[in-house]
Design a protein around this nucleic acid. Sequence first.
DNA 1: AATGAATGAGCCTTCATTCAT
DNA 2: GATGAATGAAGGCTCATTCAT
Lengths: 229, 229, 229, 229
Amino acid sequence: MNDSETTAAPDPSEPDANPRWQRRPQARPEEIVRAALQTFVERGYAATRLDDIARLAGVSKGTLYLYYSNKEALFQAAVRENLTPVIVAAEESVAQHHGASLVLLEQLYRRWAASLMDPVLGGLCKLIIAEAGNFPDTARLYVEEVVLRIRSIFRRVVERAMADGELRPLPAEQVVRELMTPILFLSVWRHSLAAYEPRPLNTEQFLENHWDMFLHGLLPIPGNRPDRK
Amino acid sequence: MNDSETTAAPDPSEPDANPRWQRRPQARPEEIVRAALQTFVERGYAATRLDDIARLAGVSKGTLYLYYSNKEALFQAAVRENLTPVIVAAEESVAQHHGASLVLLEQLYRRWAASLMDPVLGGLCKLIIAEAGNFPDTARLYVEEVVLRIRSIFRRVVERAMADGELRPLPAEQVVRELMTPILFLSVWRHSLAAYEPRPLNTEQFLENHWDMFLHGLLPIPGNRPDRK
Amino acid sequence: MNDSETTAAPDPSEPDANPRWQRRPQARPEEIVRAALQTFVERGYAATRLDDIARLAGVSKGTLYLYYSNKEALFQAAVRENLTPVIVAAEESVAQHHGASLVLLEQLYRRWAASLMDPVLGGLCKLIIAEAGNFPDTARLYVEEVVLRIRSIFRRVVERAMADGELRPLPAEQVVRELMTPILFLSVWRHSLAAYEPRPLNTEQFLENHWDMFLHGLLPIPGNRPDRK
Amino acid sequence: MNDSETTAAPDPSEPDANPRWQRRPQARPEEIVRAALQTFVERGYAATRLDDIARLAGVSKGTLYLYYSNKEALFQAAVRENLTPVIVAAEESVAQHHGASLVLLEQLYRRWAASLMDPVLGGLCKLIIAEAGNFPDTARLYVEEVVLRIRSIFRRVVERAMADGELRPLPAEQVVRELMTPILFLSVWRHSLAAYEPRPLNTEQFLENHWDMFLHGLLPIPGNRPDRK
DNA sequence: AATGAATGAGCCTTCATTCAT
DNA sequence: GATGAATGAAGGCTCATTCAT
């Protein structure tokens, strides 16, 4: 792998500014985990060869084992180390907000949706769903630590909005699903079949429209609601 | 889907004239493809061993190769031979119906949702999404022959409903996604993370609630907005 | 290293009357185990590649796994399936004999020594000793099922001979060791360093001389036999 | 062994004139070789990782390569550097002694046996035997430089004892084997299967008994001693 | 001299695929 | 047509060896 650089003279090819060799060793696990997540997302667990991850991370196959004990550990690390940001972001949204619940709900929705549109976190979601059958522990972890918690956050806001009369009184659990589900699916879609659609989906618009329809529904506006046929 | 679609599954050539033994050989490919689909759905493509499929189909491993040239062909056959029913059902729904569009839409919605709640067809959907990265052709096939066509069917009905004033004038494409997406996600969910939720989801109710919220939205009744039910 | 039952090696039970292709499939495990034992003896466990065993057995590497679940199981099978003959032979020797004990002892000695001079069984003994540290269970098995049992057989005969006045009254345990130990070492020696001796050892003579010296000792003829110390 | 024997362990070049720091660098190779021998003895050559040796020696893995060019060189160094003491001790015994040969023989026997009961030297013997197949050169070295030389020492003493009428006239070579073999086997045994015996062997007693039986044999006290054959 | 992160060749093991019966 | 024993290519993992610091 090392071509010409047998000489002791430092090759000037790397314009590595100040900290000469510090970044590499420290960044290694992070780079590896990122490469792993990407490859796992693209190919699935079983079809991913450690060679692929290593190449993408710019290291040799053996190096992976300096940081992760085996393929499964690498998989779980890729999953777990990207789980927390989602939860933290959501919980902070709730904690920080005071005021009208519907505004909070919308803000929560936008932030959470944005996080799922992130290539990494969205890919993570798709990966876990695709591999749930083979990694029960990781699946359970994801459900309990992410799905249920975020759902719970949304539900509290929805219930408050209902109590305040800002939303129709409906089963909160179902309402939350109605809000979250299209975003989750979009996230999965973007990492699977979206590439095969003739025209790319406008994500921004999708999120906007969903929020609109979520609030107003599809029926015509009451006042001028026309008679059916 | 009109093309006769024999594809990878070789038709049992030489119709043996003897009616006694015809059923078995003819049934073989079907049994194999069913076993294959089930195993692929449960474990994913790479984690599925041909041994598993053979055992589940009640045949030997070598027999698989009498009908399908290799693992990938078996996968594609499993996918393709289960694609048609969904489309056919949907297209028939539209063709047969005459009358109020909203009623047709609801009927279409219920039938299509029911078909996705079928363990096999729902699993198929999840499978294709999970393996999209490794089987571009199959993914493209699914998008073009299933997703786009069903979407198109829905869109025509939605557009008619809008033209008739039964639905608010909105971007039809988006409206269709708003209707379909939660069902698709539910289908994926049931074959992945649903098992790790504390309480099982009531599918029937979910479908009902989604239709309700899809129509009415979440905001409170403007003044005389009628309660549903 | 746990030896929790190999069992992968199918017993060639059911002698299936049909002579055509019987020998090969039924002989396979035996051929494999023989090749394995030989290679393990020559190179030791870790330095033995399954490729070597397969080549020596005339099969492919994958075939080994049709009969033995992994390398360790193959090792243990090689050991265990060659253990019983030694014990059986020895126990039969005792059971069958009646008459003067010293004659029985000599007969026992010759038979047991002959079995250890067998290339396979002698190699087995050397192998177990060489790998004892890495396969405690197999080592314990060998000690308990072979070493202790044979030692016990010898001891009973020696004790009878002492009781009959045919041997000096000495600690039987030690006497047995004095008799067995050179043979055991010879067996190990022939499978390790013997090849590097300038002149090959005459095994027959060694066995004869040992029996003679075992009986008479090295001191000059009686009459003037000095007390030791 | 007269050759100065620097062999694989490179002498710390440039004797640094400064006495304070000499001991450490000079002690390094010795510490490494000791750690290597111990680990090789415990686990065998192939199962020994250089990591283990380095850790036991208290150095880093790379440091091993400062003193030994590779694993095999380390093995051979571990063997060779522990060979000399045994021979030297034996040769000195003979050279220094004058007087009755039988006394010398016993003294020689005791010293040599004691050296083989040393955990390191005994382990070395077992190690060489176990790995003989993989290290012909080392095996040959051991046979020629140790086995044959010690055997020769013993033989000279035995021959003298026979010439003096202190021992029966028998093939000296065989007599020497009769004397040495149980000790060698005991040494191997202690480093392999001894741990799996129910009761630990009393080494001291074993050595005593062997000497006794070696001299007197097993037959009852003279007077009625029967001719053999 | 000493370190230890990095490497990559090599081996065990699996499993899709073949073929003689 | 059907079987299943046999194959061998491929991939996960280990560890001796190297090299920049």
